[in-house]
């Protein structure tokens, strides 16, 4: 697998609800990075790019990847609350956050719960709000591999990360993650009907990023976030599917660095 193995550490953070697997790298102001529900097969070049400007924390969501599953957890809001607790455990009074896909939903929920926890918010292809046009692609009718392939604009980039023949280990990780995703977001699938009513209270500067060829999350989700958040702007990346962090790492990292570094 093509991941970067340079300057990062890997650890398990013990929080009362369970062990959280976390990768961490770089120096500078703290930047939390919440992955999509697919997880990631390691320290991605995108993380490395961001680590040039920030201390990047990449926790696996509880129940995803190598993080312990809290069996009581029933909703994405529960998950968001657990991340607030994780931040407290890490001694992060505030941080900027980048949420990819499902991770964007988690970040948005956290922001509605604690208006000043984030300095800057970046939502990339975020689910969490019901699309006003189109539907969020239902991964439950697809295999993990079929779904992940649809997350890419360029099949070569899928293969570069996961190889043309995916491994049983990788497919098992997808199964673990999909199982946790549906424990949290089965119905309604991947959105919270209350969230749009609460986003108006979040005045944190927010960058909403959509991609031109996102087959998973309709563009209307990005537009909705940008409309509902009082201090948000929308950027659209070209030649890119749902996995912008893998397909356009340099462009996305530059966009984020510029936005987060503004004071």
């Amino acid at each position: 697998m093509s991941t970067t193995a340079t300057n990062f550490t890997e650890e398990f953070v013990q929080v009362d609800f369970g062990k959280v697997h976390m990768m961490k790298g770089g120096t500078g102001q703290p930047l939390l990075l919440f992955q999509d529900d697919l997880g990631s097969p390691g320290w991605l070049p995108f993380y490395e790019d961001l680590a040039r400007s920030f201390t990047v924390y990449v926790p696996s969501h509880p129940g995803f990847g190598k993080s312990e599953r809290p069996n009581w957890m029933r909703s994405t809001r529960d998950l968001a609350l657990s991340h607030l607790w994780l931040m407290k455990t890490l001694g992060l009074e505030s941080a900027s956050v980048v949420g990819i896909g499902f991770g964007g939903w988690v970040a948005a929920e956290m922001a509605t719960m604690c208006h000043h926890i984030f300095d800057r918010i970046v939502l990339v292809g975020a689910v969490g709000v019901q699309p006003t046009e189109g539907e969020i692609l239902d991964q439950i009718l697809l295999s993990g591999e079929e779904y992940t392939k649809l997350c890419f604009h360029d099949p070569a980039k899928f293969e570069a990360l996961y190889s043309a023949e995916t491994t049983v280990d990788q497919r098992e990780v997808w199964e673990v993650n999909r199982e946790m995703a549906i424990r949290l977001a089965w119905k309604p699938y991947m959105f919270n009907q209350s969230l749009p009513h609460l986003l108006g209270g979040v005045d944190t500067p927010t960058l909403v990023v959509s991609t031109k060829d996102d087959k998973v999350v309709p563009a209307s989700c990005g537009r909705r976030y940008a409309d509902l958040l009082p201090n948000a702007r929308l950027e659209v990346l070209r030649d890119c599917g749902h996995c912008a962090d893998v397909e356009q790492p340099v462009e996305l990292a530059a966009l984020i660095s510029g936005f987060v570094s503004q004071k």
């Binding site: 439950i140 009718l141 697809l142 295999s143 199964e175 999909r178 199982e179 995703a181 549906i182 424990r183």
Partner: peptide
């Protein structure tokens, strides 16, 4: 169908 027959979880 292998996925529908045994969906995640």
């Amino acid at each position: 169908h292998p996925v529908w027959f045994s969906p995640p979880g």
